[in-house]
Structures are given as C-alpha cells and as structure tokens.
Design a binder for these strands. Structure first.
Lengths: 148, 148
DNA sequence: TTGTTAATGACAATCGTTTTCAATAAGGAG
DNA sequence: CTCCTTATTGAAAACGATTGTCATTAACAA
C-alpha cells in the first residue's frame, strides 16, 4: 500500500475534495483497522492519534468517503451505521454475516455460482419491475461462533 | 380472511399477550394496508379510526407483533424502521427492492433456483464460520419506476 | 363482579446523526 | 512565497426516531 502510492488520496482529490489533515488521519485509522467500525469507534481511534478532531468531522468525512467510493457503509439494524475501508478501488462483491447478539459483522466471499444467480434475478427485476438496480446486499443474521 | 377467523388473534394470545383495543386497531390497519409502513405512518392511520392512541403504543405494539411473528420489520437504511403484515403464519421467503429516492419498498417473490443456491451457501457459512444463521435478507437498492 | 397485573398514553429522556456558524486552513492565482 | 477565495473544521445546538418513566386504565382469570 506504500509502493504505488495510496490510491484513495488521488480518489479524494479526483472527486473534488481537499486533502486535509483530519481526513488523512481518518483514512489512516480505517485503513489500519480490521472489521466494520461505527462512527464513534472511528472517533475514538482517531482521537488517540489526533486529539483535536471533532465527532462532527468524523461523520462528515465518512459520508464523503462513502460518496467517493473509498469506504463502504452498512446499516446492520441496531441503529448505528458501520463503515469499512475498501482495500481496492474496484467493487469487491461480498456478503455479510451479522451477529444478532454482539453486532459483529463478518465479511464472506461472493460465491461464483451464487453471484451468477443473483445477477440473473437482478436482470429479471429490472425488466419486470422497471427498477434500476444500483447495488445489492445479502445478509445472514444469526449468532457468531463466540455468541452461540 | 374473515372465514376461518383471524389467525393473529390466537397468535397474540398464544404468545401471552392481552388482546386489547389499541392492538386490534393497529393490526387492523396493518392488515388492510399494502406495503411497508413506518411507525409514524401506522400511527396516523390508526389515529383516524382510534384517535385516543399514542405513538408510544404504536412502537410497543409493533415490537410485540414482530416478536410474535405476525409482522415483519425491515430497516432500509434511511433511519426509520418499516413494518409489513404477514399474510400467513408460515414463513414466506421474499426479497426487497428498495428505492434510494422515495424509500419505497417492493416485495419480490423468492425465485426457486436462487433460493436453492442461497441455502447452499448458508450451509457453507454455518460450517466454515461456525455461524448459526437464523434468517437472511437479500436487498436490491436502486431507483423505482417512478423515480427513474 | 372483583382483584391482579399487563397495557396504556403523556411526557421526558436517550441516542445517533445533522445543522449552524464563526474560525481556520487548503491550495490555486499572482 | 504570499495572498485570497472558499471548502473544511469543531463546538454547540438542533434534530428525528425510538425508548423509558409513571400514574391511570382496562383485560381477563378467579
């Protein structure tokens, strides 16, 4: 990630946003964190390396990063949104296992076979319902290894 | 729905809840409404036929109905939960088309083929991640006919 | 009919998120 | 490098959906 430069810096500039200190710190934290973080979790982590940051800036920057396609946002249903850094600029289709108890979110690879079938019905829906599909989410709710 | 009695009355009693007037009115509204209603939309509709009702009761009753399996709850990501009445006591697997603009939710039938494949990967996840899957959601986000 | 207790409704409180606004800093023009 | 415009910032207040509190009411078992 150091070698060919950080793709997301260019992406931020390319989308017409300024490359500011708080933004760099926020992306840095997201980049070095595993899993899906809530806005407050991001705030706490950023605050450790850049105490001047405000929670408002976290929210605004996260929205900006989502709009730029650098960060994914998912709403698991517990009232707080969670954000995950995208490792690559390309779309990387994956699904989620969401633990009803601890709220933890696990990424799972998009099975080729399944992916094909989902895309088939997607085309059907576009035709039958005249619905323009931008993106889709497949989620499995239940109990994770630790919470069972 | 009149013929063999209202299955949900028995279900409510069976789950240990009392059959009260506000509850009957709320289920009546849900039963006769098409689509997915927010708590406030339910409140406004119930208020027309039973003005004494309070918003708090709407929320509490909706949660109770979800817990009883009479109503489905879905969180489309716009900050407000939506509720839909289940026509039958059995699970009726279906997916959702969610309009990013107007927030409208369209139910679509669960394609047999797709359903089979989803269940296959579900079994995989249960094995590979030791994750107990209770239920799943497949959503397609985009623009509906009217909003395109 | 009565007594117990769940359910109700008004109101306040909570929580995540957004808005407002004056102060600051990014980065293009010169 | 310096200046100037304008996006960005942080603190605080506002917001909207939902939940808690509590005294009053009504289900329904006895």
């Amino acid at each position: 990630m150091q070698g060919r430069g950080r793709w997301f810096h260019g992406r931020i500039r390319g989308c017409g946003y300024r490359l500011t200190l708080p933004r760099m710190k926020i992306v840095e934290v997201l980049n070095s964190s595993k899993g899906h973080l809530s806005a407050e979790e991001v705030f706490l982590k950023v605050h450790q390396i850049y105490p001047a940051v405000g929670l408002t800036t976290i929210y605004r920057t996260l929205e900006m990063l989502v709009a730029s396609g650098i960060v994914g946002k998912i709403n698991a249903g517990d009232g707080k949104a969670r954000y995950e850094f995208k490792k690559t600029p390309e779309e990387d289709p994956h699904f989620h296992l969401i633990c009803k108890k601890c709220g933890n979110i696990i990424n799972v690879e998009a099975n080729k076979e399944l992916d094909k079938h989902i895309n088939k019905v997607k085309e059907e829906y576009i035709k039958n319902y005249e619905f323009k599909v931008d993106n889709l989410q497949l989620r499995f709710y239940g109990l994770c290894k630790n919470c069972k």
